[in-house]
């Protein structure tokens, strides 16, 4: 018990450090995948994944379509259950819990508690269409965190201001552009104060001219630091700008990882080289 508290205290220092966090040792990772695999029916789509994400670290996940990036993020958000291995969040197993000294499958109460650390922004926004923009953002703090109406309102207004939507509070999602919707979705997730947030191709459903505004908002959040981010993306320039570390996955394996400079300037594996060259062409 004491040891984990110490580790947690150590973890809290991490935001002060910047960049190149993957080299850190001795800091408890905010997320750890250990031998994680995932099958859909007979098809194993992720094989023996091992991955640590440090507190506050920004990790970009790139790779061809179908390589398993979304599945990796969805398992962290508890939307998909791993078929094998273990995911640990902030030192505690996500999909397992201790019962009579043994690790057993987590129950809903455990998952609920763990989910408080995790947030996610989706490709298709998934805003609540029956609620105004403001209510989309206050509903989580109100119903889940149990915060007072005034404070939730204040937080939401601040957050919506941050994503540049301070003038859209009473508008319904259907009246917004895709870029605006996605910024509301980002505010909605941020206001819950997660320690790690998954961004799953958050610009790929947008018209090209709207991609920039969303990426800008994410860059701004990344600069602020404290929250770790798993950025699943096909935007290579964005990955290079924002990420502390880039992970290249293919066919359910992590093929190569490293700082953005290394991944983009000096790719080692043939797979990554061909992926990047194909990417620049298209």
């Amino acid at each position: 018990m004491n040891a984990t508290e110490l580790e947690k205290a150590a973890g809290q220092e991490a935001p002060a450090r910047t960049r190149k966090r993957q080299a850190d040792t001795g800091v408890q990772p905010i997320v750890r995948y250990e031998h994680v695999s995932k099958s859909f029916g007979d098809l194993e789509v992720l094989h023996d994944i091992n991955l640590d994400i440090a507190p506050g670290e920004k990790v970009a996940m790139i790779g061809p379509s179908g390589s398993g990036k979304t599945t990796l993020g969805r398992m962290l958000m508890t939307l998909e259950e791993p078929s094998g291995g273990m995911i640990t969040v902030d030192g505690e197993p996500l999909w397992h819990m201790k019962s009579k000294g043994r690790l057993v499958k987590a129950n809903e109460a455990h998952l609920h508690r763990m989910r408080g650390n995790i947030g996610m922004v989706f490709q298709h926004f998934n805003l609540f269409p029956h609620m105004s923009v403001l209510r989309n953002v206050t509903i989580g703090p109100r119903k889940v965190l149990g915060i007072s109406a005034e404070e939730a309102h204040e937080r939401a207004v601040t957050m919506l201001g941050k994503v540049g939507l301070g003038d859209k509070l009473d508008v319904y999602p259907s009246m917004l552009s895709g870029g605006q919707k996605q910024r509301v979705a980002i505010a909605r997730a941020l206001v819950m104060n997660p320690k790690i947030m998954v961004f799953d191709e958050v610009t790929s459903a947008l018209d090209p001219e709207l991609v920039g505004e969303v990426l800008e908002v994410i860059k701004e959040i990344a600069r602020e630091g404290e929250m770790a981010m798993m950025l699943i993306t096909h935007e290579m320039d964005f990955a290079r700008d924002v990420a502390d570390r880039v992970i290249f996955g293919a066919e359910g394996h992590i093929v190569e990882q490293g700082p953005p400079e290394q991944i983009f300037e000096n790719p080692q594996s043939e797979r990554l080289q061909s992926f990047l060259s194909r990417f620049r062409l298209s």
Binding site: M77, L79, R115, M120, N126
Partner: peptide, 9 residues
């Protein structure tokens, strides 16, 4: 899924 991501019961 959005409800789950926001940790709604």
């Amino acid at each position: 899924e959005a409800a789950k991501a926001l940790n709604f019961s």
